[in-house]
Amino acid sequence: MNKKLISIIISVAILSLLPFLVTGFWVRLLTNIFMFAILASALNIISGFTGYAAFGNMVFFGVGAYTVAVLMNKYHFSFISSFIAAGFISILLALILGFLLLRLKGHYFALGTLGAAEAIKYIIDNLTELTGGAQGITIPSMKGGPFLINISFYFIMFALLVIIVIFTWWLSKSRLGYTFKAIRANEEAASVMGINTTIYKIVAWSLAGLFTGLAGAIYAYWFSYIDPPTVFDVMWVVRMFVIILIGGAGTVFGPVIGAFLLEGLSELVWSNFLNLHLGILGILIIITILIIPNGLASLTTEGKGLKGLLESIRKNRVNAL
Protein backbone atom coordinates (compact mmCIF):
# COMPACT_ATOMS: atom_id res chain seq x y z
CA MET A 1 0.00 0.00 0.00
CA ASN A 2 2.83 2.38 0.90
CA LYS A 3 4.56 1.53 -2.36
CA LYS A 4 1.33 2.28 -4.17
CA LEU A 5 0.93 5.63 -2.38
CA ILE A 6 4.49 6.66 -3.27
CA SER A 7 4.03 5.81 -6.93
CA ILE A 8 0.79 7.80 -6.96
CA ILE A 9 2.48 10.85 -5.42
CA ILE A 10 5.30 10.58 -7.96
CA SER A 11 2.83 10.32 -10.88
CA VAL A 12 0.90 13.35 -9.65
CA ALA A 13 4.16 15.31 -9.27
CA ILE A 14 5.32 14.35 -12.77
CA LEU A 15 1.93 15.18 -14.30
CA SER A 16 1.96 18.57 -12.54
CA LEU A 17 5.37 19.50 -13.98
CA LEU A 18 4.99 17.87 -17.39
CA PRO A 19 2.97 20.59 -19.18
CA PHE A 20 5.79 23.08 -18.64
CA LEU A 21 8.28 20.79 -20.36
CA VAL A 22 6.47 19.44 -23.42
CA THR A 23 4.85 20.96 -26.52
CA GLY A 24 1.21 22.04 -26.85
CA PHE A 25 0.35 18.83 -28.74
CA TRP A 26 1.26 16.70 -25.73
CA VAL A 27 -0.51 19.00 -23.31
CA ARG A 28 -3.72 18.74 -25.35
CA LEU A 29 -3.32 14.97 -25.72
CA LEU A 30 -2.94 14.55 -21.96
CA THR A 31 -5.90 16.86 -21.29
CA ASN A 32 -7.97 14.66 -23.59
CA ILE A 33 -6.78 11.51 -21.79
CA PHE A 34 -7.69 13.07 -18.43
CA MET A 35 -11.15 13.86 -19.76
CA PHE A 36 -11.72 10.25 -20.82
CA ALA A 37 -10.36 9.02 -17.49
CA ILE A 38 -12.94 11.24 -15.72
CA LEU A 39 -15.77 10.02 -17.98
CA ALA A 40 -14.80 6.36 -17.52
CA SER A 41 -14.39 6.76 -13.75
CA ALA A 42 -17.84 8.35 -13.59
CA LEU A 43 -19.41 5.50 -15.60
CA ASN A 44 -17.51 3.10 -13.37
CA ILE A 45 -19.59 4.27 -10.37
CA ILE A 46 -22.89 3.18 -11.92
CA SER A 47 -21.68 0.35 -14.18
CA GLY A 48 -18.57 -0.96 -12.45
CA PHE A 49 -19.64 -0.64 -8.81
CA THR A 50 -23.42 -0.88 -9.07
CA GLY A 51 -23.59 -3.13 -12.14
CA TYR A 52 -26.05 -1.10 -14.22
CA ALA A 53 -25.07 -0.74 -17.88
CA ALA A 54 -25.86 2.95 -18.37
CA PHE A 55 -25.52 3.00 -22.14
CA GLY A 56 -26.89 6.53 -22.41
CA ASN A 57 -24.40 8.21 -20.07
CA MET A 58 -23.28 10.67 -22.75
CA VAL A 59 -26.54 12.50 -22.04
CA PHE A 60 -24.89 14.12 -18.99
CA PHE A 61 -21.84 15.07 -21.02
CA GLY A 62 -24.03 16.76 -23.61
CA VAL A 63 -26.29 18.45 -21.07
CA GLY A 64 -23.28 19.70 -19.05
CA ALA A 65 -21.69 21.06 -22.23
CA TYR A 66 -24.92 22.74 -23.32
CA THR A 67 -25.51 24.27 -19.89
CA VAL A 68 -22.15 26.05 -20.11
CA ALA A 69 -22.69 26.99 -23.76
CA VAL A 70 -26.17 28.47 -23.26
CA LEU A 71 -25.35 30.29 -20.01
CA MET A 72 -22.11 31.79 -21.36
CA ASN A 73 -23.36 32.57 -24.85
CA LYS A 74 -26.90 33.79 -24.16
CA TYR A 75 -26.74 35.02 -20.58
CA HIS A 76 -23.06 36.04 -20.31
CA PHE A 77 -22.38 34.03 -17.18
CA SER A 78 -18.78 33.47 -16.11
CA PHE A 79 -17.31 30.00 -16.67
CA ILE A 80 -17.16 29.26 -12.95
CA SER A 81 -20.85 29.94 -12.35
CA SER A 82 -21.92 28.04 -15.49
CA PHE A 83 -19.66 25.16 -14.46
CA ILE A 84 -21.40 24.96 -11.08
CA ALA A 85 -24.80 25.23 -12.79
CA ALA A 86 -23.81 22.35 -15.10
CA GLY A 87 -23.12 20.21 -12.04
CA PHE A 88 -26.52 20.99 -10.52
CA ILE A 89 -28.39 20.39 -13.77
CA SER A 90 -26.61 17.05 -14.30
CA ILE A 91 -27.62 15.88 -10.84
CA LEU A 92 -31.18 17.08 -11.40
CA LEU A 93 -31.33 15.21 -14.71
CA ALA A 94 -29.97 12.04 -13.09
CA LEU A 95 -32.60 12.30 -10.35
CA ILE A 96 -35.45 12.66 -12.82
CA LEU A 97 -34.22 10.00 -15.26
CA GLY A 98 -33.15 7.73 -12.43
CA PHE A 99 -36.58 7.89 -10.83
CA LEU A 100 -38.14 6.91 -14.16
CA LEU A 101 -35.58 4.43 -15.50
CA LEU A 102 -33.89 2.74 -12.55
CA ARG A 103 -36.82 0.43 -12.00
CA LEU A 104 -35.69 -1.23 -15.24
CA LYS A 105 -33.00 -3.88 -15.09
CA GLY A 106 -30.33 -5.31 -17.40
CA HIS A 107 -30.93 -4.76 -21.09
CA TYR A 108 -34.05 -2.74 -20.44
CA PHE A 109 -32.15 -0.17 -18.38
CA ALA A 110 -29.44 0.05 -21.06
CA LEU A 111 -32.10 0.64 -23.72
CA GLY A 112 -34.04 3.09 -21.58
CA THR A 113 -30.99 5.28 -20.91
CA LEU A 114 -30.02 5.18 -24.57
CA GLY A 115 -33.55 6.12 -25.61
CA ALA A 116 -33.69 8.97 -23.08
CA ALA A 117 -30.28 10.25 -24.23
CA GLU A 118 -31.33 10.24 -27.88
CA ALA A 119 -34.64 11.92 -27.03
CA ILE A 120 -32.85 14.70 -25.11
CA LYS A 121 -30.41 15.12 -28.00
CA TYR A 122 -33.30 15.72 -30.41
CA ILE A 123 -35.02 18.07 -27.94
CA ILE A 124 -31.87 20.22 -27.71
CA ASP A 125 -31.53 19.95 -31.49
CA ASN A 126 -35.03 21.40 -31.87
CA LEU A 127 -34.80 24.17 -29.25
CA THR A 128 -33.16 26.35 -31.88
CA GLU A 129 -33.91 29.68 -30.13
CA LEU A 130 -32.06 28.66 -27.01
CA THR A 131 -29.41 26.20 -28.16
CA GLY A 132 -28.72 27.16 -31.76
CA GLY A 133 -30.18 23.81 -32.85
CA ALA A 134 -28.34 21.79 -35.49
CA GLN A 135 -26.17 24.84 -36.27
CA GLY A 136 -24.39 24.33 -32.97
CA ILE A 137 -23.41 27.06 -30.52
CA THR A 138 -20.16 28.91 -29.84
CA ILE A 139 -18.80 29.57 -26.39
CA PRO A 140 -16.72 32.72 -25.67
CA SER A 141 -13.15 31.42 -25.51
CA MET A 142 -10.78 31.91 -22.64
CA LYS A 143 -8.67 35.08 -22.67
CA GLY A 144 -4.91 34.68 -23.04
CA GLY A 145 -2.32 33.15 -25.32
CA PRO A 146 -2.32 29.53 -26.52
CA PHE A 147 0.19 28.44 -23.88
CA LEU A 148 -1.89 29.84 -21.02
CA ILE A 149 -5.09 28.33 -22.42
CA ASN A 150 -3.52 24.89 -22.92
CA ILE A 151 -2.07 24.89 -19.42
CA SER A 152 -5.30 26.13 -17.84
CA PHE A 153 -7.45 23.38 -19.34
CA TYR A 154 -4.78 20.83 -18.51
CA PHE A 155 -4.93 21.72 -14.84
CA ILE A 156 -8.72 22.11 -14.69
CA MET A 157 -9.14 18.62 -16.16
CA PHE A 158 -6.33 17.21 -14.02
CA ALA A 159 -7.90 18.63 -10.85
CA LEU A 160 -11.26 17.06 -11.66
CA LEU A 161 -9.52 13.74 -12.39
CA VAL A 162 -7.70 13.82 -9.04
CA ILE A 163 -10.99 14.58 -7.28
CA ILE A 164 -12.86 11.70 -8.91
CA VAL A 165 -10.01 9.24 -8.33
CA ILE A 166 -9.84 10.19 -4.64
CA PHE A 167 -13.61 9.92 -4.48
CA THR A 168 -13.58 6.46 -6.13
CA TRP A 169 -10.82 5.35 -3.76
CA TRP A 170 -12.91 6.52 -0.80
CA LEU A 171 -15.94 4.80 -2.33
CA SER A 172 -14.12 1.48 -2.65
CA LYS A 173 -13.54 1.51 1.14
CA SER A 174 -16.80 3.08 2.28
CA ARG A 175 -20.16 1.74 3.36
CA LEU A 176 -21.70 3.47 0.34
CA GLY A 177 -19.35 1.62 -2.02
CA TYR A 178 -20.12 -1.72 -0.39
CA THR A 179 -23.81 -0.97 -0.76
CA PHE A 180 -23.31 -0.37 -4.48
CA LYS A 181 -21.37 -3.63 -4.78
CA ALA A 182 -24.09 -5.48 -2.89
CA ILE A 183 -26.63 -4.26 -5.43
CA ARG A 184 -24.38 -5.48 -8.24
CA ALA A 185 -23.88 -8.89 -6.62
CA ASN A 186 -27.54 -9.54 -5.86
CA GLU A 187 -30.10 -6.80 -5.85
CA GLU A 188 -32.85 -8.86 -4.26
CA ALA A 189 -30.60 -10.01 -1.44
CA ALA A 190 -29.45 -6.43 -0.86
CA SER A 191 -33.06 -5.36 -0.69
CA VAL A 192 -33.87 -8.12 1.80
CA MET A 193 -30.93 -6.95 3.95
CA GLY A 194 -32.75 -3.64 4.35
CA ILE A 195 -31.04 -1.59 1.65
CA ASN A 196 -33.37 0.76 -0.20
CA THR A 197 -31.90 -0.22 -3.57
CA THR A 198 -33.82 2.36 -5.59
CA ILE A 199 -32.39 5.29 -3.60
CA TYR A 200 -28.84 3.92 -3.73
CA LYS A 201 -29.06 3.29 -7.47
CA ILE A 202 -30.25 6.88 -7.97
CA VAL A 203 -27.36 8.13 -5.79
CA ALA A 204 -24.87 6.11 -7.86
CA TRP A 205 -26.26 7.42 -11.11
CA SER A 206 -26.36 11.02 -9.83
CA LEU A 207 -22.69 10.80 -8.88
CA ALA A 208 -21.88 9.40 -12.33
CA GLY A 209 -24.01 12.12 -13.91
CA LEU A 210 -22.38 14.89 -11.88
CA PHE A 211 -18.82 14.05 -12.92
CA THR A 212 -19.81 13.34 -16.53
CA GLY A 213 -21.65 16.68 -16.71
CA LEU A 214 -18.69 18.58 -15.22
CA ALA A 215 -16.36 16.99 -17.80
CA GLY A 216 -18.81 18.05 -20.52
CA ALA A 217 -18.85 21.58 -19.09
CA ILE A 218 -15.05 21.83 -19.32
CA TYR A 219 -15.10 20.29 -22.81
CA ALA A 220 -17.51 22.98 -24.07
CA TYR A 221 -15.35 25.83 -22.76
CA TRP A 222 -12.21 24.10 -24.07
CA PHE A 223 -13.51 23.48 -27.62
CA SER A 224 -15.49 26.78 -27.88
CA TYR A 225 -18.01 25.18 -30.23
CA ILE A 226 -20.46 22.31 -29.73
CA ASP A 227 -23.35 20.81 -31.67
CA PRO A 228 -25.81 18.05 -30.69
CA PRO A 229 -24.42 15.18 -32.83
CA THR A 230 -20.92 15.71 -31.37
CA VAL A 231 -21.64 15.98 -27.66
CA PHE A 232 -24.45 13.40 -27.64
CA ASP A 233 -22.54 10.91 -29.82
CA VAL A 234 -22.97 7.33 -28.60
CA MET A 235 -19.25 6.84 -29.31
CA TRP A 236 -18.47 8.75 -26.09
CA VAL A 237 -20.16 6.10 -24.02
CA VAL A 238 -18.68 3.28 -26.08
CA ARG A 239 -15.19 4.62 -25.44
CA MET A 240 -16.00 4.89 -21.72
CA PHE A 241 -17.12 1.25 -21.74
CA VAL A 242 -14.00 0.10 -23.60
CA ILE A 243 -11.75 2.04 -21.22
CA ILE A 244 -13.43 0.39 -18.23
CA LEU A 245 -13.16 -3.01 -19.92
CA ILE A 246 -9.45 -2.59 -20.56
CA GLY A 247 -8.68 -1.23 -17.10
CA GLY A 248 -11.08 -3.33 -15.07
CA ALA A 249 -14.64 -2.54 -13.96
CA GLY A 250 -15.22 -1.66 -10.31
CA THR A 251 -11.56 -0.79 -9.64
CA VAL A 252 -10.15 2.60 -8.63
CA PHE A 253 -7.32 3.01 -11.13
CA GLY A 254 -8.62 0.75 -13.92
CA PRO A 255 -10.45 3.57 -15.73
CA VAL A 256 -7.38 5.85 -15.52
CA ILE A 257 -5.04 3.18 -16.88
CA GLY A 258 -7.58 2.25 -19.56
CA ALA A 259 -7.91 5.89 -20.62
CA PHE A 260 -4.15 6.30 -20.98
CA LEU A 261 -3.93 3.11 -23.05
CA LEU A 262 -6.96 3.60 -25.29
CA GLU A 263 -6.80 7.35 -25.90
CA GLY A 264 -3.00 7.45 -25.98
CA LEU A 265 -2.80 4.61 -28.50
CA SER A 266 -5.68 5.88 -30.58
CA GLU A 267 -4.12 9.35 -30.90
CA LEU A 268 -0.55 8.23 -31.46
CA VAL A 269 -1.01 5.08 -33.53
CA TRP A 270 -4.37 4.93 -35.24
CA SER A 271 -4.84 8.57 -36.07
CA ASN A 272 -2.40 7.81 -38.90
CA PHE A 273 -4.87 5.32 -40.39
CA LEU A 274 -8.00 7.41 -40.65
CA ASN A 275 -9.86 4.85 -42.78
CA LEU A 276 -9.27 2.05 -40.30
CA HIS A 277 -9.85 3.92 -37.06
CA LEU A 278 -13.25 2.41 -36.27
CA GLY A 279 -12.27 -1.06 -37.40
CA ILE A 280 -9.20 -1.10 -35.17
CA LEU A 281 -11.32 -0.01 -32.19
CA GLY A 282 -13.77 -2.80 -33.05
CA ILE A 283 -11.04 -5.44 -33.19
CA LEU A 284 -9.57 -4.13 -29.94
CA ILE A 285 -12.97 -4.46 -28.23
CA ILE A 286 -13.43 -8.02 -29.51
CA ILE A 287 -9.94 -9.13 -28.50
CA THR A 288 -10.14 -7.48 -25.07
CA ILE A 289 -13.44 -9.20 -24.27
CA LEU A 290 -12.22 -12.56 -25.58
CA ILE A 291 -8.97 -12.48 -23.59
CA ILE A 292 -9.35 -10.18 -20.56
CA PRO A 293 -13.05 -9.40 -19.98
CA ASN A 294 -12.25 -8.24 -16.43
CA GLY A 295 -9.52 -5.89 -17.56
CA LEU A 296 -5.81 -5.56 -16.90
CA ALA A 297 -6.54 -5.36 -13.18
CA SER A 298 -7.48 -9.07 -13.25
CA LEU A 299 -4.11 -10.19 -14.60
CA THR A 300 -2.47 -10.70 -11.22
CA THR A 301 -5.31 -12.40 -9.35
CA GLU A 302 -3.66 -15.84 -9.55
CA GLY A 303 -0.17 -14.85 -8.45
CA LYS A 304 2.80 -13.29 -10.17
CA GLY A 305 5.04 -14.46 -13.01
CA LEU A 306 4.11 -15.89 -16.40
CA LYS A 307 2.35 -18.89 -14.88
CA GLY A 308 0.20 -16.68 -12.67
CA LEU A 309 -0.54 -14.43 -15.63
CA LEU A 310 -1.75 -17.30 -17.83
CA GLU A 311 -3.73 -18.79 -14.94
CA SER A 312 -5.35 -15.36 -14.30
CA ILE A 313 -6.32 -15.06 -17.95
CA ARG A 314 -7.80 -18.57 -17.95
CA LYS A 315 -9.76 -18.04 -14.71
CA ASN A 316 -11.15 -14.63 -15.69
CA ARG A 317 -12.40 -15.47 -19.17
CA VAL A 318 -16.10 -15.48 -19.90
CA ASN A 319 -17.36 -19.06 -19.80
CA ALA A 320 -17.83 -20.17 -23.36
CA LEU A 321 -21.03 -21.91 -24.28
Binding site: S47, G51, A53, F55, G106, H107, A110, V238, F241, V242, L245, A249, L281, G282, I283, L284, I285, I286, I289, L290, P293, V318, N319, A320, L321
Partner: peptide, 16 residues
Protein backbone atom coordinates in the same frame (compact mmCIF):
# COMPACT_ATOMS: atom_id res chain seq x y z
CA UNK B 1 -17.51 -17.56 -26.52
CA UNK B 2 -18.99 -14.56 -24.72
CA UNK B 3 -22.76 -15.08 -24.86
CA UNK B 4 -22.83 -16.03 -21.16
CA UNK B 5 -21.18 -12.74 -20.14
CA UNK B 6 -22.88 -9.79 -18.44
CA UNK B 7 -24.98 -7.17 -20.23
CA UNK B 8 -21.94 -4.90 -20.09
CA UNK B 9 -19.82 -7.52 -21.94
CA UNK B 10 -22.32 -8.51 -24.64
CA UNK B 11 -23.37 -4.93 -25.41
CA UNK B 12 -19.79 -3.78 -25.85
CA UNK B 13 -18.85 -6.89 -27.82
CA UNK B 14 -21.67 -6.56 -30.32
CA UNK B 15 -20.93 -2.84 -30.64
CA UNK B 16 -17.33 -3.79 -31.47
Amino acid sequence: LVVRGSVFITLTFTFG
